[in-house]
Nucleic acid binder design. Structure first.
Lengths: 183, 183
DNA sequence: CGCCGCTGTGTACAGGCGTACACATGTAAT
DNA sequence: ATTACATGTGTACGCCTGTACACAGCGGCG
């Protein structure tokens, strides 16, 4: 049995560190050296485990998207009434779910990167498919797409605007966009 | 009277070139040299007219936001009935307005950059204020914010998704989000 | 007509980047 | 205990970046 010399979680920890660095410095400011420091591994370890920085970025984005999917799944589990759905979506936007501003920032980095790198499209599409299919358990596909878009747009606005958006307003908008669909 | 040696539009042309480069290569891939080539000016001309690359970027974003504001204003001018409003918003998302995928890409670059650079917030806030106040001529402020967020979210989804979003779907979502507000 | 001064530019520099690769290091087998 | 090898790392290289700055070219003044 071949024994590992060091931690076998190294690769995973590097990916986590990469996610962290992307969140803090953006894709533009994400370098091998920064990630290496964040993961507390030598510089050479990155090129050893990943064929290129592009490769590492893609894997980081993939893992983040998977985590977001899990959060979505968990957040909407057990929803039964329309009332609960409205509340759940509002929570998601208002930041009372598992996803904070940090996580959304990474998602936006991914979107923008995918706009130019077709290799990342597969990740964004998988993620959007998941998030929509979760919502489709409660509403029709068209409405699901609308809510999905609304969530991302509102989170963006909320994050950028200095004056906070009132929870009541969010709720009102969500309520109307969901319409009369039955859960 | 002091005569200019060359074109006095140089500075403006550099800013336009910067916008172009940002749209094509993203903020990350925007360099002095690329902009200089795009504007057909010598490299030194950039540091001569702009104190730093950051300064140039900010001015480029500012000009783009102003242009988007003008497009918004023009696009919603003359709208009278609720029906026309729904159609106008749908056109905006569907790309049949003055703004194409190119322009939206720059807007998203701006948003993401503003997320980390507080100096850019002033630009995003001015832009969001404008776009919302245009919509507030037709609907109440809360709804305006919702529509605004919906527009950006849907455009993003539409741009990233490979399967195109049907115009009919967009219209249906917009229609519901606008609700029963009177123009 | 010659000089001055200002507007504008080519070039060079220091720093940081991604990546390759020669080597150290610890393990398993003999 | 020694060898052979796979695993992992420190370092160095070439490239590209933002920016400074010494100079060139031209218009106005004496």
């Amino acid at each position: 049995m071949p024994t590992r010399r060091h931690d076998p979680d190294r690769k995973a920890r590097i990916i986590d560190a990469a996610i962290e660095v992307i969140a803090e410095h953006g894709v533009a400011g994400t370098t091998h050296r920064l990630i290496a420091v964040a993961a507390d591994v030598p510089l050479g370890s990155l090129t050893y485990h990943f064929s290129s920085l592009e490769d590492l970025r893609a894997q980081a984005f993939r893992r983040h998207a998977q985590r977001m999917s899990v959060i979505y799944e968990a957040h909407f589990r057990g929803i039964e009434t329309r009332e609960e759905l409205v509340e759940a979506v509002t929570d998601l936007i208002d930041g009372d779910a598992g996803a904070g501003a940090h996580d959304w920032a990474i998602a936006y980095e991914l979107y923008l990167a995918a706009l130019r790198d077709p290799a990342l499209r597969e990740i964004t599409e998988a993620w959007m498919r998941t998030s929509r299919s979760v919502l489709e358990r409660f509403v029709d596909p068209t409405t699901a797409r609308g809510i999905d878009a609304l969530i991302e747009g509102l989170v963006m606005h909320k994050t950028l605007s200095t004056g906070p958006v009132s929870r009541q307003d969010i709720r009102a908008i969500v309520d109307r966009t969901i319409g009369t669909s039955t859960p």
